[in-house]
Nucleic acid binder design. Structure first.
Length: 116
RNA sequence: GCGGAAGGUCGGAUGACCGCUGCGCCGGGGCGACCCGGCGGGGAGGAAAGUCCGGACUCCGGAAAUCAACGGUGCCGGGUAACGCCCGGGCGAGGUAACUCGACGGAAAGCGCCACAGAAAUGAAACCACCGCGCCCCGGCGCGGCAAGGGUGAAACGGUGGGGUAAGAGCCCACCGCGCCGGUGGCAACACCGGCGGCAUGGCAAGCCCCACCGGGAGCAAUGCCAAAUAGGGACCGCGCGUCGCAAGACAGGGCCGUUUUCGCCCGAGCAGGUCCGGGUUGGCAGCUAGAGCCCCCCUGGCAACAGCGGGGCAAGAGGAAUGGUCAUCGAACCGGCAGCAGUGCCGGGGAACAGAAUCCGGCUUACAGACCUUCCGCGCAC
RNA sequence: CGGAGCGUGGCGCAGCCUGGUAGCGCACCUGUUUUGGGUACAGGGGGUCGGAGGUUCGAAUCCUCUCGCUCCGA
């Protein structure tokens, strides 16, 4: 791991990422924003609205998204980028983990390819 | 065996790999705050929920008593830090029973309301009917008596039976109900017994209210500190220019919870006291987890809730918010098939309810697939 | 996390405190007026009062529980 991974905490950062590039898969929505400091750390945020369910369902969805990000974005994340993973109703908690890993790789290829 | 009642416990399990977090230790780096790595042992619930009550704690302007307003509680006694909670008792209701349920003070302190229907909805009164007398066209009318019967309504001024009467009526009597007085038992709610009154007193207090008791307000996003940044601002309010003294200070005087009183504190010639606006910061640390703590056992007191002594055990502290992710095995409910009179057994599928700590405790309420334990009641059968 | 408030026809609101009739505006339907439409006038339909339980003879209204939504506080 050559770049540190930080957690996104500010509401303003989430709003900026929401206006940037995004792509959707059955299990989640991925947003990506290239910051001005291109050598900075990779930053990741997680969002689950009340639409996902009650507190138990929201926490479980966020934990699965965090596990996905730890496996993929730590190595394939681009420095100086903010990523936001958004949970979806039912699917985020129930889809097979391998399928979501593939989807995340595909989503990263799509966003990196178009923004390069 | 079937059906039921009460109380309690648990609420998926095991393993592997990869992670998060705070605590302790070790090593390294840094002047330091701290950062990195390794190891060890912790890491969601019975409701963590709803936020419906009661506290602890903190601030508001310090405390006690009192009155008023407002809010709450409401049979009696006890338990508790406290409670609207718990335990025991009383009364009422339901059930064959075990047992369960009850916002369960006062309607002769006062005000208000009781739609429609009905003669009349609480001062009493009288539509039909009943009875007596009078009159006539023999069916009614007039006067008087009466309130038992009819009809209306959720509710009609005690109920049943007998006597009585022109017809009736607590008009009289017995029993029941109600009220009052006395006695006995009980701390009390209340119960029982005796006597008296002839009955006056409809319902609603989850309408106002009366009585008794309780409560100052706001809340951990409280509050305190540090750093950074902006400003060194503006407006208003409070009291004021007293006496003695060289001064410190003291005394007048003033201020401090809605009222009053007592004490206490503050000001007392600038105090730089308070409030608001404007501007800045949306960082860090503390509060922050050991306290009326929970559980188990023995003993003592108590019917019990509970209290006391002793012993043992357990106790997460996050902060865009950790307590997990993936895989494998085992697996309850449920579904299907086969066997059996049945309890059930075997095979296959299936893959776990409600739900996530946010300052902390004591309760209540609500949600919940199922599994297990103890005690008790009724019925049936056998002895 | 803590604290306030609101749920009534399709939409926006009264009525609730002080219990017996659910009302107003826009919208909708029908008719008249017009060559037709709009406008105007007349008439009409449509509401489990968020849900459950209780108090009462009777609940949109009073009480308790519950569901959903909105706002405020460092």
């Amino acid at each position: 791991m050559f770049s540190r991974v930080e957690t996104l905490k500010k509401r303003a950062d989430f709003l900026r990422a929401a206006r940037a590039r995004h792509t959707a898969t059955p299990g989640f929505v991925l947003q990506m924003r290239q910051r001005t400091d291109t050598a900075g750390p990779v930053r990741i945020g997680f969002t689950c609205s009340k639409k996902v369910g009650n507190a138990v369902a929201r926490n479980r969805a966020k934990r699965r998204l965090r596990a996905l990000a730890r496996e993929v974005l730590a190595e394939h994340g681009r420095p100086g980028c903010d990523y936001v993973l958004i949970g979806r109703l039912e699917k985020t908690a129930t889809l097979p983990f391998d399928r979501m890993l593939e989807d995340l790789h595909a989503a990263l290829r799509k966003l990196h390819g178009t923004s390069a």
